[in-house]
Design a protein around this nucleic acid. Structure first.
Length: 155
DNA sequence: GCCAACGTTGGC
DNA sequence: GCCAACGTTGGC
């Protein structure tokens, strides 16, 4: 069992959207390292922290809940769609460059865990999200950090 | 293969 | 809106 954190702008795809959809293909990731995590290291059933970036006063940056990996990796179909902003001209002849997995809704926390709180927590020091300039939208999370967030901070 | 220019992310 | 961080592109 591995643990992960995925970022999404709330205005783009929020945890409430995932709750409504129950399951969605996690498309649009256009970073090789993030893709490799999804394609090579994620397993069905892995648990995933759902982080909202580019927050507002109403929806501050932070972790809002938990999702889980619900499929093996597959091609990100948006790369073949010329009308999609994530269309990839290098994906010629239907040969995919970008991959994704499906994410399923697990739960939304009663209250979000703000980035500031995460950064201040000594137990969470070393988490990728606390590093300044960390832009990776898919990152591994240690079991210790995952459990501290879901079992201590979220309660 | 180097590296400058450029584009994007995302916190503040 | 600003800007630091950093990934990608492309000329050489």
């Amino acid at each position: 069992m591995n643990y992960w954190l995925i970022k999404s702008e709330a205005s783009c795809y929020s945890i409430d959207n995932l709750k409504r959809d129950k399951k969605t293909a996690w498309t649009g990731v256009r970073n090789y390292q993030a893709r490799n995590f999804m394609r090579d290291d994620m397993r069905v059933g892995d648990l995933v922290l759902f982080y909202h970036s580019l927050g507002t006063p109403e929806l501050p940056n932070g972790i809002y809940g938990v999702a889980k990996v619900a499929s093996k990796p597959h091609a990100d179909e948006t790369q073949f769609d010329k009308k999609d902003m994530h269309c990839e001209p290098k994906a010629k002849d239907g040969v995919p460059i970008w991959a994704c997995v499906d994410m399923a809704f697990v739960k939304k926390f009663k209250h979000p865990i703000n980035l500031g709180e995460i950064k201040r927590s000594r137990e969470l020091s070393g988490m990728e999200i606390t590093r300044t300039g960390s832009r990776l939208s898919v990152t591994p999370v240690s079991e210790k950090h995952f459990k501290y967030i879901t079992e201590v901070l979220a309660n």
